[in-house]
Design a protein around this nucleic acid. Structure first.
Length: 377
DNA sequence: TCTGGGGTCCTTCCGCCA
DNA sequence: TCTGTGGCGGAAGGACCC
């Protein structure tokens, strides 16, 4: 009897907002939106209670990073412009993002999971994949339930995360990463879903294709134009038809994904590929009229990239810039150097050479600096 | 009143070279 | 020498994700 492969996907529930609720428990149950700039910091009244900003009257270019479930009930969701969110839920509390706090709690929950199951793949600040296949107990049956052992293990992980952080998470446990990612969303928040291949037709096929990790807005729209809305409808397609419309690699992937096939391993270590800093201006800037301000921002970005590289012990051989114009068109320029660099002056100089290759007659809304082709120092 | 910031990966094109 | 082919690195853009 060969061991069954069990992959878990763990997703923290409304992570940023939930971390903020640890700090401000009086906001529990209220619509709260995280996003925007440094202003809108809560201020403490003389009696010790907090005065919070609300979305009402918000002006600026920020977007919603996370919203509590109460705020989502008003139709507010991440990625939405804060101005639009303010129309839908003017009474919602607005809190600025505090990445240091989220990183701290991210480390806490990942360390807690590692105590139970050490084979973890990092997928950003609030989610991970966990290979449970070889964790003691995962292959055990409980009564006639062949998934009983792994279910108990996943429940133990959820309890451990809650003990370590006070936060809830949702877990999906399935034979692979693709299905685990889908499963973790089926009973969110604070849910646990275990699926096998046999559950595919009933639990997965009714879902819209957009729920598949790897089908975004573009592919979703193209599939819709072909009359394919659900994962089941995608699974019913001839592979050749999908290859014909989407190319060999992506067409095959679509076909396999719809049938729940995914052999990707859980990758427990990874080297960074690039490091970048970018900023959207409060108002659009012109290369000539706002030259001094742009120069200052450009230099700061180069310094930030240099600091990030040095702190983490890397140098970059390819330096690049990113510009976004007032019409939202984005261009990039790269320059590969003879040797990798990590100091601000060299990055600034290479980025400056990139900038000379761009037509700057339109006003700019964003500027970014990037280091790629990283090498360890 | 549109549309953040930090990433990864893939495709395409182009020049260079064998 | 002419033409073709194929590999490869670099550059640019795009799709997608958290």
């Amino acid at each position: 009897m060969t061991a069954r492969r069990w992959i878990a996907h763990l997703d923290m529930d409304a992570f940023y907002a939930s971390v903020e609720l640890l700090r401000y428990p009086e906001l529990a149950g209220q619509p709260v939106v995280i996003g925007g700039g440094r202003r809108h910091q809560p201020t403490q009244r003389p009696d010790g209670t907090w005065q919070f900003a609300t979305l009402a009257g918000y002006t600026g270019r920020g977007v919603v990073t996370t919203a509590t479930y109460a705020a989502r009930d008003y139709g507010v969701h991440s990625g939405m412009g804060l101005m639009k969110a303010a129309q839908r839920a003017p009474q919602a509390v607005l809190l600025p993002t505090d990445f240091d706090a989220y990183r701290h709690h991210s480390r806490l929950f990942k360390a807690a999971v590692a105590e139970v199951a050490p084979r973890i793949e990092d997928r950003g600040i609030d989610e991970i994949y966990i290979d449970l296949s070889e964790v003691p107990g995962a292959q055990d049956s409980v009564g006639h339930d062949a998934t009983g052992g792994v279910r108990a293990l996943a429940q133990e992980i959820r309890n451990t995360v809650r003990r370590a952080t006070g936060l809830s998470c949702s877990i999906g446990v399935t034979p692979n990463k693709l299905l685990a990612k889908l499963a973790s969303e089926l009973d969110k928040p604070d849910g646990l879903t275990v699926l096998t291949e046999a559950d595919l037709p009933v639990r997965i096929w009714p879902l819209p294709v957009r729920r598949l990790n790897g089908i975004g807005p573009k592919a979703g729209a193209r599939l819709a134009a072909l009359g394919i809305g659900t994962i089941g409808e995608l699974a019913a397609q001839e592979r050749a038809r999908l290859v014909e419309h989407f190319g060999r690699a992506y067409g095959r992937w679509l076909h396999e994904a719809a049938h729940g096939i995914d052999d990707r391993p859980v990758v427990t270590h990874g080297e960074p590929v690039s490091m970048s800093r970018e900023t959207t201006f409060e108002r659009d800037l012109h290369a000539v009229r706002d030259r001094a301000e742009l120069t200052r921002i450009f230099t700061t970005l180069a310094e930030q990239v240099a600091t990030d590289l040095q702190r983490r012990g890397y140098a970059g051989r390819t330096i690049g810039i990113k510009l976004r114009f007032d019409d939202f068109r984005t261009v990039t320029r790269d320059l590969t150097l003879p040797a990798a660099v990590a100091d601000a002056a060299a990055i600034r100089a290479a980025a400056g050479r990139c900038l000379k290759r761009v037509d700057l007659s339109r006003r700019l809304r964003l500027l970014g600096v990037r280091a790629g082709s990283l090498v360890r120092l």
